[in-house]
Design a protein around this nucleic acid. Structure first.
Lengths: 345, 345
DNA sequence: GCGCAGATTGACAGCGCTGTCAGGAATGGG
DNA sequence: CCCATTCCTGACAGCGCTGTCAATCTGCGC
């Protein structure tokens, strides 16, 4: 069955091609009876509008680009992260008859920025979703800006009033986690900070301090260790924290990888989790559920964030003014096995 | 800078649009001097051919679809798997000026097949890469066939002489792993079988038997436990195997998830790996490197397989006869910490 | 019954490119 | 030097659709 064109549908329905076009695009001002007639013809011929023709005539590409840090080039820890982003973006795209263009981008390589620009210019997406951590790298943002393409940043460090971005409540939910730990009776709650370049992760530290204050606990530098988001750095930080004469009874790491490092060290040292030490992370990576004990952490609604970003881009096409400000999608605690009452409670 | 069209390039270079088209498409029969002139004009104007116009005029979509089991719908364990497939397919696509269309497909849902067909009909990809385990589900294959789209299956259970497919040497490399275990002095090497529906995984069992034979070891039913590819089933299988009066000194699981289950049980039972028990898996999932001890396993060159599949589809356009048979890409052992000399060796 | 605003429809000109084909230039052999 | 080939180039007709705009139809108020 050769694919039917709009002409054949028009002939079968006894209308002009323009009317068929109207029906297909859900344009107003088509008489109900006509619409039905056309729809029957479409169904009968299994007509599918040709995207290329449509894009060409309408001067739209119906393409949304999703730019993210290439996990394959790295170590695949963030594969789950990317998959969630894709899922959300894909949902919004298919709802809007758009296509998702995936643009993995290994920012460690020299010419990627030029390549990215080139790719964007070739494919001409209508909008670009820029995922973290790329979203807070000025060079990347600039490269995209230079292409003149609309973009939405996900979890950008600081908001840019000129652009729309989607973020989560890192600070608030981190405070919540800290309060939760305090509510379990913990008085010495330590924190492992993340990579200094990752702005969103820095906010988690602020949240930790907020939570401490909310719980009437004093902040102490000695309960803070520096990490860089890797498992290894989590291990070092844990060793440092746990070797104190009065070690913390709870450790909250700015991301799950570091929390996993803490769990490893505790296991190695024979420290029982959660009886002697509570551990919490942030991100809810797949590994969080797979380790023993399963990690208490914070889950970001990544798919939903990406979906909103995509929707904003798609809808923003018709309303440039709307595409400003920051939208916050709230994360939530995932209480699992690695946290429990403070010893002696 | 408004995007330049082929007309402006033609004018600047002093040639017809057709000649510009020839240069852009690397068609033969263009004088070298003319080509250079056109190329300079293209560079000067930063001209990028409009894909939609090109697709429309050439009756090609320049789209390759990648259909895989939606990891987001499931549990994200296979996110790394999908990312690798995407990476490989993307590489082949960008080399061929094509675009990759990602088509996650949750086969557990009722109408996905119809949705998939619909999506394929709407987007009209030129070819489809069908990843495992979808590639050995007759329904899925049939759905794609009904759309009349060319497709390549990855790791299909049995080859179909009529179609091209890309697979890895599951059986041979499993035999190799078994021989490796035997070479470490193990005499009682157990095997945990995978999900019966997953054909490629079944071949690993055959390979295990081959390896046993190669190593002059007898096959014993008592050293085989059934799993279903999940971590949980690996745990059950391990409990069963290790509770025997003469337990195996090595366990080879048909996939990494089950091997992880084995490691968990061993840890729980206080069995030292690899001193008392060697454990091997298959797939080299991210978790394999993250657990302790790091898992000896087998790495499939997934990205390369996907790349070949994509290339076959792209090139096959010009040579339908070439798109037959099965291409084998070899996997390789990843020796890590979970395997060692048999006790007493 | 008349006139007008709004609803409905169609004619048609492109969108930017490639395929086709024909014409002119260059090349090689006799 | 002529003619057959091959090489190179351009004119032009679409590809299948949407935007524009004008034509027609409807309903409604008076």
């Amino acid at each position: 069955m050769p694919k039917a064109t709009i002409f054949e549908v028009a002939k079968l329905a006894g209308v002009s091609i323009k009317t068929v076009s109207r029906v297909v695009n859900h344009e107003p001002n088509v008489r109900e009876s006509t619409r039905e007639r056309v729809e029957r013809a479409i169904a009968k011929l299994n007509y599918r509008p040709d995207q290329s023709a449509r894009n060409l005539a309408s001067h739209r590409s119906h393409l949304i680009g999703l730019v993210y840090d290439d996990p394959a080039a790295y170590e695949l820890p963030s594969a789950g992260y990317v998959i969630q982003l894709q899922q959300g973006a894909l949902k919004a795209c298919s709802a809007a008859m758009s296509q998702l263009l995936i643009l993995p981008c290994n920012y460690r390589k020299a010419q990627v920025l030029a390549q990215l620009k080139s790719l964007i210019e070739e494919t001409r997406p209508e909008g670009i979703i820029l995922a973290a951590p790329l979203s807070n790298m000025p060079k990347v943002v600039r490269a995209i800006e230079e292409t003149g393409t609309a973009y939405v940043r996900m979890s950008p460090g600081e908001a840019n009033g000129e652009h729309y971005s989607v973020a989560t409540n890192d600070r608030e939910v981190s405070a919540e986690m800290t309060r939760y730990l305090a509510s379990l009776g913990h008085r010495k709650i330590a924190f492992i900070t993340g990579h200094p370049n990752h702005k969103a992760v820095a906010k988690r530290f602020d949240g930790y301090r907020d939570g401490l204050k909310d719980s009437k606990l004093n902040f102490s530098e000695r309960l803070v260790a520096a990490g860089d988001n890797s498992i290894g750095s989590g291990e070092s930080a844990a060793e440092e924290l746990l070797s104190q004469e009065q070690p913390p009874t709870a450790i909250f790491a700015a991301n799950d990888d570091m929390a996993v490092g803490v769990v490893r060290v505790a296991n190695r040292l024979g420290i029982d989790i959660p009886a002697e030490l509570s551990v919490a992370g942030f991100d809810d990576i797949a590994l969080a559920r797979q380790i023993f004990p399963a990690l208490t952490t914070i889950r970001q609604p990544l798919a939903e964030m990406a979906e909103r970003a995509a929707r904003a881009l798609i809808e923003g096409k018709n309303d440039a003014a709307a595409i400003k400000g920051t939208e916050i999608v709230t994360s939530s605690l995932q209480i699992r096995e690695s946290t429990g009452p403070a010893p002696g409670e």
